[in-house]
Every structure is written in C-alpha cells, then in structure tokens.
Design a protein around this nucleic acid. Sequence first.
DNA 1: TTTCACTTTAGAATTATTATAAACTAGAAT
DNA 2: ATTCTAGTTTATAATAATTCTAAAGTGAAA
Lengths: 135, 135
Amino acid sequence: MKHKDILNKLRTSGLRPTKQRVEIAKFLFDREKTFHFTVESLNKLLLKKITTKFALATIYNTIHAFKKAGHLNKVEVRGKRSYFDTNITNHHHFYDSDTSELIDIDVKDVIIQKLPKAPNGKKIKNVEVFINLKN
Amino acid sequence: MKHKDILNKLRTSGLRPTKQRVEIAKFLFDREKTFHFTVESLNKLLLKKITTKFALATIYNTIHAFKKAGHLNKVEVRGKRSYFDTNITNHHHFYDSDTSELIDIDVKDVIIQKLPKAPNGKKIKNVEVFINLKN
DNA sequence: TTTCACTTTAGAATTATTATAAACTAGAAT
DNA sequence: ATTCTAGTTTATAATAATTCTAAAGTGAAA
Ligand SMILES: [Mn+2]
Ligand SMILES: [Mn+2]
Ligand SMILES: [Zn+2]
Ligand SMILES: [Zn+2]
C-alpha cells in the first residue's frame, strides 16, 4: 500500500491525514498478513520504527477512529486488554495462551453442521469460533 | 443443595466454611439453572438477600477461591468485566448484547463438521462457540 | 480455652482505558 | 501567501475493574 493509497484511505473515511495517522496506517495496513495487536504492543512497535513518539492517547484515538471507519476489528480475548485485528472479514481464531497470540482461521475452514436456534424473539447476528491451543 | 452439602462442598475443596463463603455458595449453587454473573451483579444481588454486607474484596476472594476449586468457570465476553458461570461443564454460549446476558448452549447442540488443524507443534485444547444475538 | 493459620476487611495501589482542555495543524477561505 | 477554524494531538487527570496490603477477626485443632 503506497503513500497515496494511505492518504486516500484516510480521506475517504473522513479522517484528516495527519502525520500520526499516516504513520500508524502505514504500519498497520502496509503488510501482507493479518496483524493482531493490543494498544500496548502497537505502541512498543511504533517506538522502534518511528523517530518522534506519539502520545498514548493518540494511539487510542487513532485505533478507535480506524475501528469506527471499519478498517480494524476488535477481538475479544481472555485477559485484560483489547486486541485489534487488521483482518476485517468474518473469520475465526486460534488463541495461543502461551504466547498471547491470535492466529486467523478462514471461515471456510470451519463448517458447522448443527447450531441451536436462537432464543425467542432473537436472531443470530454472528457465530464466533475460538480455538484455544496448548502445546 | 442443603446446608450440609454446602459445608461439605467447601470442606472437601479445602475451603473453611466461613459465614461469607457459605452464604455466597448457597446463593450461587442452590439453584436449578446455570447462573451467569459478574462480581458487580453478584454483589448487588447479595445485598438484597443478605442482612450484613460483605466487603467487595471478600466477593472477589470467594469467587476466585471457588474458581480455583473448580466450582466456577470464567467466561470471556465483550466488555470490561469478567463473567463467571456456575456451569462448569464444557459448553457454548449465546450472548445478547442488548441485555448483556449469557445463555448456555449444550455441547450437543453444536456439531462442527470441519475444523482447521492446529499450527505446528500445537494442539487444540478446546473449541468455544460464541453466538452473538440481535433482535 | 488457647492458639494460629486462614480469612475478612477497609482502604490503597494498579492497570487499562477514557475524558479534559489547552496547544497545534490541515486545509478551506480570503 | 495569510488568515481562520474545526479537527487533532497531547499531557495530564479521571475512571473503573481488579488486585494488593496489612491489620483485625475467626474456625477449628489441640
Ligand atoms: Mn477501546
Ligand atoms: Mn479476577
Ligand atoms: Zn484475525
Ligand atoms: Zn454458561
């Protein structure tokens, strides 16, 4: 993803392409594979890559703006902090509690044959499959 | 579950049956259906049922002791606080984000036909299916 | 009854996240 | 180019769930 594309992605999302947002967007979206991160881990990685550091609040602001714009997903994981995911398609996860690492699973790799019907008056919004790993 | 059984349950878990533990154990385990709760919700419910209130730290201590003894499960749900579950068998959940309510799903009501194989050197510990509900 | 390891408790500490409000800036208008 | 302003960043404070601390209380063994 080129500089131009990043600027475009931000602008079409109604996000002014500030230095901070551009840097973070490049870091997050200019990669082949899905990237799973917490605000803490992202901050650490950014500190290595970038000359001037950003306020932690800016990381939060930016991540929330990207999430709101639909460029990031939030993943619920056992633990205290939130995980975010650059894979915004519907998919499942392995979770390795040893390394606190998430690994994507394509929806096609999970086939569910039988599901319970939703309780009275409710519908199923989505089904998340979460596979915990061990050694 | 009778008073005697509660005392027995605590003692066989190596937990001294204090007034607080007995009250909380009765409240949690003397019921037909699964009970899902947060520490906050449990505290509120206990305040209604009980004459002398317990310190919040005691609720935490007790819940953690019960969890450690295998009498409670912890369930991860979107949000900031932890949910606990008196159903300690392997099972799945509906989650109703309108009411912040969990509903049990028997393992038998979910049949998975295809699962991806675990990453190199890892094994599957367990599979959690989480069904989000909408109206 | 005495004893003491276990437990409860009030309050402080911690941690992730969100709110505040002053300083800054992208980009539109002049 | 300069001015203007709404949107943005930032340091810092506030919040909220949970955990820690250490003093006071208690179950039950001796
Ligand atoms: Mn957040
Ligand atoms: Mn806990
Ligand atoms: Zn993912
Ligand atoms: Zn349950």
